[in-house]
């Protein structure tokens, strides 16, 4: 296990977010230790994605604070926001590759556009990052539409780590993949996060995946964190919500809302 640094890398204090009349985040408090891997579990529509987007700054919380290294980033704009953003990498659920650009340019995008690295040098780095996620250099000239779902996830992962971020966010990394490809992606996530030395936050409802990538697990329900502990404790959490979720029981205290609203 990596060394456990006690200082807090990311902290959420009372983060709230509503869309119209629907409250999605109802006061989230969370601390994430440096270089740890936190997995947030919760049902569909429980606010996992919204929370992730509030952390990285794609969404602006209605209330509360998001602190990165103790700095309140909630209301940053312009250049300050760019500075904070450049510390993040994110792997999107659908990979969200730019389909008008070849694979290598996808991976190198943040380097070329964000950091002004020359195209030739960025291409070399991109090929290197593709190798890191197990893809050959010939893949670099293909377009995203020519790749399978698993390969797109790998390219998305290569893009997320291309600029050596301190914090990497994973939005349902195994959703839509077969179980074997899911396990391979999980392994890649664990190894790349360790190589880059980053703090990782993942959201998932796939418990097998959560057990593979998590040091710690937090469960979100009705816009609040209802349980937070290490992955070893999750089977003895004593929390009926967590028990129902990790065993995937239809009966229990959790009531699923069917409508997305």
């Amino acid at each position: 296990m990596a060394e456990r640094d006690t200082d807090i890398h990311i902290e959420l204090r009372g983060v709230r977010k509503s869309f119209g009349p629907k409250t999605v985040l109802d006061g989230i408090d969370l601390k994430v230790r440096r270089r740890s891997s936190l997995v947030i579990i919760g049902g569909s529509g429980s606010g996992k994605s919204v929370m992730l987007k509030c952390i990285i700054g794609l969404l602006h919380p209605d209330g509360g604070q998001v602190l990165i290294d103790g700095e309140d980033t909630t209301n940053l704009k312009g250049r300050d926001r760019d500075r904070v953003m450049s510390r993040f990498g994110m792997l999107f659920q659908s990979a969200a590759l730019f389909d008008s650009l070849p694979v290598w340019e996808n991976v190198a995008f943040g380097l070329i556009q964000g950091r002004g690295v020359s195209r030739r040098k960025a291409r070399d780095i991109a090929i290197e990052k593709l190798a890191q996620v197990g893809l050959g250099s010939e893949v670099g000239d293909l377009y995203p539409a020519e790749l399978s779902g698993g390969m797109q996830k790998r390219v998305g992962l290569a893009r997320a780590i291309a600029a050596s971020p301190e914090i990497i966010l994973f939005d349902e990394p195994t959703t839509g993949l077969d179980p074997i490809m899911g396990a391979i992606i999980d392994e890649l996530i664990v190894s790349t996060v360790r190589d880059v030395g980053a703090t990782a936050i993942s959201i998932t409802h796939d418990m097998a995946s959560a057990r593979r990538i998590a040091d710690e697990v937090a469960m979100i329900y009705h816009g609040k964190i209802i349980w937070h502990g290490s992955i070893d404790e999750i089977d003895h959490s004593g929390n009926p919500y967590v028990d129902q979720f990790i065993h995937g029981r239809a009966e229990g205290p959790i009531r699923m809302s069917v409508l997305k609203e």
């Binding site: 969200a96 730019f98 556009q113």
Partner: peptide, 25 residues
């Protein structure tokens, strides 16, 4: 159609996370 597809497939969010302003790009 192009920007709409980019929006619904989170490509616009991805631009932002790569420090690129979609308004400028």
């Amino acid at each position: 159609a192009e920007i709409g597809t980019m929006k619904v497939t989170e490509q616009i969010d991805a631009l932002v996370t790569l420090s690129t302003n979609p308004m400028k790009y």
